[in-house]
């Protein structure tokens, strides 16, 4: 039970501040990168009109995500944002599934990863909003319905980052804590595979989808 809440950290002192680096998370994130690149290369290496099994899987994923983006954003933005959506979803999906392999851990279990992705989505959405509406119309929305609502509207926008990143972090970390505690209590008999199937495969897939969808929806609220 001592593993609960323990982290391997590299602490670098710099100008009187300590820079803390969570080593495991970085290694796991790189493993996810490698897995996605391998998947991408292997699905698109032998392109044919009659797709092989790997190409069919790749086409399925990409076309599903393109359709999803089109539903939410409309035709004119598909080409621009669909690659981002595909990359985000695949990264989250592989990350959330990584914990099922022994000795590997989900990078999304660390708040830094999810918060980083949340801030990325926030910045993209607001940049898209400023670009499509112009800064004046964008800034005016903060003063709706009355001008003194501005601070609360601002907090409301920032709370979106908190909610989107804590939702993913809470689900993945919660799942892994529950698996750890229950496996410890029952001496890892019978139950753990089912727990991994539920929290890893099922909840992991749904949360990856929800995070991607919410990022798209935040963009669509800004551009329309």
């Amino acid at each position: 039970m001592g593993e609960l809440g323990k982290l391997h950290q590299l602490i670098i002192p710099l100008f009187g501040h300590n820079i803390t680096i969570n080593l495991e998370v970085i290694v796991m994130t790189w493993i996810v990168f490698v897995l996605i690149i391998v998947l991408g290369v292997s699905t698109s290496r032998k392109k044919a009109i009659l797709p092989g099994p790997l190409q069919a899987v790749g086409e399925l994923i990409v076309s599903l995500l393109y359709d999803l983006t089109e539903d939410a954003l409309g035709k004119e933005y598909v080409e621009k944002y669909a690659p981002l959506v595909c990359a985000l979803f695949m990264f989250l999906l592989v990350s959330n599934w990584l914990g099922m392999i022994p000795h590997l851990e989900e990078p999304t279990k660390d708040l830094n990863t999810t918060l980083g992705l949340g801030i990325m989505g926030f910045v993209i959405a607001h940049y898209a909003g400023i670009k499509s509406k112009g800064f004046k119309a964008y800034a005016k929305e903060y003063f709706q319905p009355i001008f003194f609502m501005m601070p609360l509207n601002l907090i409301g926008e920032l709370a979106k980052i908190v909610s989107i990143s804590f939702r993913l972090f809470g689900n993945i970390m919660g799942g892994s804590i529950i698996i750890l505690v229950i496996s410890h209590l029952i001496y890892s008999i019978i139950l753990p595979p089912f727990l991994y199937a539920f929290f890893g495969l099922f909840v992991g897939t749904i949360q990856a989808f929800v995070f991607t969808m919410l990022t798209v929806v935040y963009i669509s609220v800004q551009v329309k």
């Binding site: 939702r167 809470g170 689900n171 970390m173 919660g174 529950i178």
Partner: peptide
């Protein structure tokens, strides 16, 4: 199944906080 599994998320959060309070 998908809908009711997602409904459980708040209960899972509560369970995580309980486990942390008990074991940390």
């Amino acid at each position: 199944l998908i809908g009711s599994a997602v409904c459980q998320t708040p209960a899972i959060f509560a369970m995580v906080v309980s486990l942390m309070l008990m074991f940390l």
